[in-house]
Write a protein that binds this DNA or RNA. Sequence first.
DNA 1: GCTCCGGCTGCTC
DNA 2: TGAGCAGCCGGAG
Length: 107
Amino acid sequence: MGAPLINQAMKHFKSQVLLILSEVPFGSCISYGELAKQAGFPGYGRQVGQLMKKLPKDTKLPWHRVVNAQRRISFAENTDGYLRQKEKLEKEGWVIVGNKLTLNEGK
DNA sequence: GCTCCGGCTGCTC
DNA sequence: TGAGCAGCCGGAG
C-alpha cells in the first residue's frame, strides 16, 4: 500500500464524499466514481464503496442514490443492502429491473 | 511487508 | 448490447 493518501487526506476524502452525497437531490443518483471525482479523488470509486459499507444503518445520507457506472446496484441480489437500496430507490421513482436502474419518468 | 479481496471504472472485442 | 480484462487504491489477514 504505498500511501498515496496520508491520513489527513483520507479524512478529507471521506468528509468530501459524505458532503457531496448529502447534496445529491431527491430522485437523482450518482456513481461511485463520479462521487469520488467530485470529491477531488478520481479513481477512488472502490473506496467510496467501502465508505458506504461502513455507514450506520440510521444514517441520514442518501447512500442508496449511489450506484456503479453502469447504473446497477452493486450488491448481490440476495443481500439485505440490495433490498434496502432497491426499496428506497423505488420510493424515489426509480424502477429496478434485475439490478439495473431505470428512471420511471418520460418512459 | 506481502498478498488477496472488495458495493469500481473504462476500454475492447 | 453485453461480457471480458486490466488498472486502481485502501484495508484486512
